[in-house]
Write a protein that binds this DNA or RNA. Structure first.
Length: 358
DNA sequence: TAGGCCATCTGGTCCT
DNA sequence: AGGACCAGATGGCCTA
């Protein structure tokens, strides 16, 4: 069990650590390209856009010229003004001004390169966290948050030596994420879960989690935008607040060939196979709306009530109404390794709380 | 139009 | 002196 677990989880951990190294290799190339001659376009652009700052630096130069310590410093020798103390400023000759400008331009170029490297590293990070999408990129901050949660979740798997409760896993991944990103992540998990469930229950019957008050509907969440042009790959540069972005998002933890289209970049992490989509069955659980709400409030304690409701409605679906037409497409490879440990949810959840609510 | 996200420039600080 | 890093400022783009 542990061996298999490690073999599944470690590649992800290695990948998460490896993206830094990869980014460094790629970054060095970027540096070489970027360190080309200072582009006039860049400089012109900077001059055009940074009128204020440029004026300020030039004013500084003017001040130096005005002070002209070499000329008048002796006259003020012995003066007690703080401005006259310290190292004398050298006269800003035209040559010095020119050198200063060149230095500033070089610094700007380096800064651009540095930020490009940073962005490149972030892109690499995006590829190894759950829900990688070329066309709907997570924002920088969301990428970092999701990566942190992902690392924590993987570490938790290693620490506990067993698969986490699915809901806790989703909760961990979504901790602190914005609602759109939460929906995206949950949607990614849901998509693959659906495939798993479809494989398990090809007749669409409800999949019951062993020893659990949960049951899973193999329904298909269909974002209405998925079929709209806005949800097609390439329709949007970034994930936007309004866009739940399921269109081409990929959860690396469970891969099926149909997702491996060029639009997805063909890059996936090794599977953790603990993803899933849960919908609490009122009938089977005998739970009231209050109970159900409790489940979601608990699982998404990091979210506001409205957020949790939104996550519930979007990522987890609201009923089996769609169940009948749930799995008409793309039967995936089977996921034999999925274990759903509902009874472990509480301690995992408490640990999550302890960690994240410090 | 407001808000979010981003790229870029800039000056300051620290280090070599 | 020069490079790396950082944070603030600014403006562009996009969406609700």
């Amino acid at each position: 069990m542990m061996t298999r677990l490690f073999s599944e989880v470690l590649p992800d951990v290695q990948k998460l650590s490896g993206w830094v190294e990869n980014s460094e290799v790629e970054d060095s190339k970027a540096i070489e390209e970027d360190l080309g001659p200072l582009q006039d376009d860049d400089l012109d652009d900077g001059d055009a856009r940074e009128g204020r700052s440029r004026d300020q630096s030039e004013m500084a130069g003017d001040d130096d010229d005005d002070v002209d310590d070499e000329d008048c410093g002796d006259e003020n020798e012995g003066g007690d003004t703080a401005e006259k103390r310290g190292p004398k400023k050298r006269k800003m000759t035209p040559a010095r001004i020119e050198r200063s400008k060149v230095r500033r331009q070089k610094a700007n170029a380096r800064e651009r390169t540095r930020m490009h490297d940073l962005n490149s590293a972030l892109d690499n990070l995006r590829k190894v966290v759950p829900c990688y999408s070329k066309t709907q990129k997570l924002s920088k901050i969301e990428t970092l948050r999701l990566a942190k949660n992902y690392i924590w979740a993987l570490g938790e798997i290693l620490r506990n030596g067993k698969r986490p409760d699915v809901v806790s896993y989703v909760q961990t991944l979504c901790k602190g994420l914005s609602q759109p990103t939460t929906n995206l992540v949950a949607g990614c998990l849901q998509l693959n879960s659906r495939k798993f469930l479809t494989e398990q229950c090809p007749d669409g019957a409800r999949f019951h989690v062993p020893n659990s008050s949960f049951s899973v509907h193999p329904y298909s969440y269909q974002c209405s935008r998925l079929s709209s042009p806005q949800c097609q790959p390439g329709s949007s540069r970034h994930m936007r607040a309004h866009n739940y972005g399921y269109g081409d998002a990929v959860y690396p933890g469970a891969i099926s060939p149909e997702y491996n289209s060029p639009d997805y970049g063909g890059h996936h992490s090794s599977p953790v196979c603990v993803n899933g989509n849960f919908s609490v069955s009122q009938q089977e659980c005998g739970s009231s709306d209050t109970d159900r709400n409790y489940h979601y409030a608990m699982h998404y304690s990091g979210l506001s009530a409205s957020r949790a409701t939104a996550v519930h409605g979007l990522a987890f679906g609201t009923s089996g109404a769609r169940s009948g037409s749930a799995h008409s497409e793309n039967v995936p490879p089977p996921f034999h390794d999925v274990h759903l440990l509902h009874h472990d949810r509480t301690p995992v959840y408490e640990e999550l709380n302890a960690l994240f609510h410090n």
